[in-house]
Simulated scan of single mutants.
Amino acid sequence: MAQQTKYNMVKEKITEWITSGQVKPGDKIYSENELVKMFGVSRHTIRQAIGDLVHEGWLYREQGAGTFCSNKLWNEKPQIQHQSSNGKNIGVITTYISDYIFPSIIKGIESYLTAEGYSLTFACTDNDVEKEKHCLQTMLSRNIDGLIVEPTKSSNYNPNIHYYLELEQNHIPYLMINQFYPQLMPPHIVVNDEHGGFAATEHLIKLGHEKIVGLFKTDDLQGVNRMQGFIRAFREHGITFFPEMVITFTTEEKDSRLLERLEKFFNADSIPSAIVCYNDQLALQILNMLRELGLSIPDDVSIVGYDDSFLAEASDVKLTSVTHPKMQMGIDAAKWIVDAVEKKDNIPPSIVYEPELVIRSSTTTLKK
């Protein structure tokens, strides 16, 4: 627990710098080397703490430039306007804005739309359906010409469906990315997450692993579909599957509670030899937890992440991870919405990306 205490101490201190105004939005924070010396902790602990603060929206990274303080309140202000030459405005709603894979998706959308002379109105739901309602109301009040939206809690029934039907009634095209609401069956650009979950699990099975635990977020369809692929891999390879091999969680569940549930497996007599994770961020947290338990990655436990994000290479153990086309998804979504706005009678088809597995040093053959 000492390492976990140091990790929390680093997070809390940096958060305190931001909330107190000691570090202001846009300010560059100390380098990894400076933070290691300042706090007297390992580089891995610093990377974990910074990774979490990026995920939570307190910080953001610029490749080659460093890590900077974000304006976290910006997430709560639904729109940012850009000037346009043609007067057309596209709405963009995502679950999150300033963390994980979303900056790359948004950058792809923004680069294409602004080049085409469109203005953008951004909004963020924090994966909360009530916030989604307010975002949709804002978009409708601004008379947008088209909408790109990432669904909120996509595996649950969505109470805001009537806003999307209003868009249809007003002949405003909309596109869903990453997932879509099954009730609407709208045009969408998604990753084949079932195949991604299958590929991650099959990779471990081919390395000789059979006792594999899967962790999946189940209030979003991405997690449900990844879990389906996980289960299919066991069936197709004729390996006995036990229900306790799946640990599910939701947006509201605290990371510490999830890690406690997983830790119970490693306090039992027969520990898992591999773990499939919902995403890279969770994989890094688990890697840290296993090290605290005195386990080595990948010699004792192999880990596979998902999204092939910058976090996959943030630790000294590089994560094997399933690809997500991030920037390309943003560009394709922007192209789709421009075509739909300008050629209203010819709605473009949906796109499904086939993900691939990038093999790094977090997985290895099972030691007999």
Rank of each mutant, 00 (worst) to 15 (best):
Y278E: 04
T251Y: 02
D308A: 12
Q285S: 12
I297H: 08
N288A: 15
S256P: 04
E244A: 14
L290F: 01
D316R: 14
E252P: 05
E252R: 14
F266H: 06
Y306V: 03
T320R: 10
D299Y: 08
H237C: 03
F234H: 06
E260N: 13
L293H: 07
D299Q: 15
Q285K: 14
I239T: 04
Q285V: 03
E252M: 12
V224M: 08
L259M: 11
T240D: 04
Y306I: 01
E313R: 08
E313D: 09
R257A: 14
G229N: 07
I239E: 02
L293V: 00
I247R: 10
D307N: 14
L293P: 01
I231A: 13
N279W: 07
L287R: 06
T248I: 06
V276G: 08
K254H: 09
S256L: 14
V246W: 00
G305H: 01
F310A: 05
D300V: 04
E253T: 14
V224K: 07
Y278L: 08
Q222D: 13
E263S: 14
A283G: 07
P272L: 10
Q222V: 13
R232F: 04
I271N: 11
T248P: 02
E263P: 05
F265P: 00
G305M: 02
I231K: 14
S270R: 14
E253I: 10
V317L: 12
F242A: 10
I303T: 08
T251V: 09
H237Q: 10
M245C: 14
E244V: 14
L262Y: 08
A233G: 06
Q285Y: 03
Y306K: 02
R235L: 10
T240P: 00
Q285H: 12
S315L: 09
L287C: 06
T248V: 09
D316Q: 15
D307F: 06
E253V: 11
T251D: 07
S273M: 08
Q281I: 09
I275A: 07
K318Q: 11
T320D: 01
D300M: 09
G229V: 01
I271T: 13
L311R: 08
E244P: 09
E244H: 15
P298F: 07
G229D: 07
E260V: 05
M289F: 01
A314M: 06
G305K: 03
I286L: 09
G229F: 04
I239V: 11
I297C: 13
L295Y: 00
R235Q: 14
T248W: 02
D269K: 15
V304S: 05
D299L: 12
V304M: 06
E244R: 15
Q222T: 15
R235Y: 05
D307E: 13
L295P: 00
S315A: 13
I247Y: 03
S270Y: 11
